[in-house]
């Protein structure tokens, strides 16, 4: 007997399968958060942050570091993306730049750490400092910032560029007045996601920015070393004696919450900015 395959049935099956795959992606995030919260529950309190040796200094340090990283990486990355997407017309130089970007993205983060130590800490004389760490992290996120910015620029429809050029705008005016404003939501989102990644990196700041101090927790200048959450966690887990039980887990929870919070801001910002611009 011939069986009739119901399109409706296969549709449902496909939907269920796809839904399951999507759900599986969410599980690790939720799982990690739950494990951290559960194991850190005993230490997770306002006191964790506000205590004299609490997490306030590392949180402030992390935020300063990430903000400075963004300030350095954004102009460089966006400028490079504008060049690649709007000005370059192929050729050997452009291929070389793209090759460099791809390779930069593949460099292990500990290598960035050593490079930052050699270049920023020693050669430039920044010392182990907020500035040296931010410069190192900026290099780390640059490939990501460039590629997300370039993607955002490419999404701006060509007819808008043509309209601007045909009205007698120069290439630069077209970039500033039409292309960049319309690519901005994507650029900002990419930037936040990139530096969100930087916030959790440990290896690059290990030799360049981070220190563990109970006496001078807050930096007074760009050239001071800082307390940062990932390094704090590293020290707690490996060296520091007599850490209250659960504190590492609670610290990890706070770090993850900051990173996820930044990602959430990126998503909301994108939705907001997208809403006001349609084409």
């Amino acid at each position: 007997m011939m069986r009739v395959v119901s399109a409706h049935k296969t549709e449902k099956l496909a939907f269920a399968g796809l839904w399951l795959c999507a759900a599986i992606v969410i599980l690790p995030v939720l799982g990690i958060m739950m494990v951290l919260a559960w194991r850190g529950a005993s230490a997770l309190s306002w006191n964790l942050i506000a205590a004299p040796q609490g997490l306030l200094a590392p949180i402030v340090g992390t935020i300063l570091l990430v903000a400075l990283t963004g300030l350095i990486a954004a102009p460089l990355g966006v400028a490079a993306a504008v060049y690649l997407s709007e000005y370059s017309r192929g050729g050997a130089l452009v291929r070389l730049i793209r090759l460099a970007i791809v390779n930069l993205a593949g460099v292990p983060s500990v290598v960035y750490g050593l490079f930052g130590l050699a270049l920023f800490v020693v050669l430039f004389g920044f010392g182990r400092s907020l500035l040296a760490g931010a410069c190192t992290l900026a290099l780390l996120v640059l490939p990501l910032v460039i590629s997300t910015s370039e993607e955002a620029l490419r999404q701006v429809p060509a007819p808008l560029r043509h309209a601007s050029l045909a009205l007698g705008a120069s290439q630069w005016q077209t970039v500033c007045r039409v292309v960049l404003p319309n690519a901005l939501p994507g650029i900002i989102t990419g930037l936040i996601l990139s530096i969100g990644r930087a916030a959790g990196e440990t290896a690059p700041i290990l030799f360049t920015a981070a220190f563990y101090s109970l006496t001078h927790p807050f930096p007074h200048s760009l050239l001071d070393p800082i307390l940062v959450l990932p390094y704090q966690l590293f020290v707690m887990a490996t060296e520091a004696p007599d850490v209250a039980p659960g504190t590492e887990w609670a610290t990890a929870f706070v770090l993850l919450a900051i990173v996820l919070g930044m990602n959430l801001v990126a998503v909301i910002l994108r939705a907001r900015l997208r809403g006001s611009r349609r084409w």
């Binding site: 309209a163 009205l167 007045r177 319309n182």
Partner: peptide
Amino acid sequence: GMVFQRPNPFPMSIYDNVAYGPRL
């Protein structure tokens, strides 16, 4: 000047579209 096949206004206000050239 040129008018294209598909209307391609900038995603800005009506005023800003017309003012785009004069502002440049």
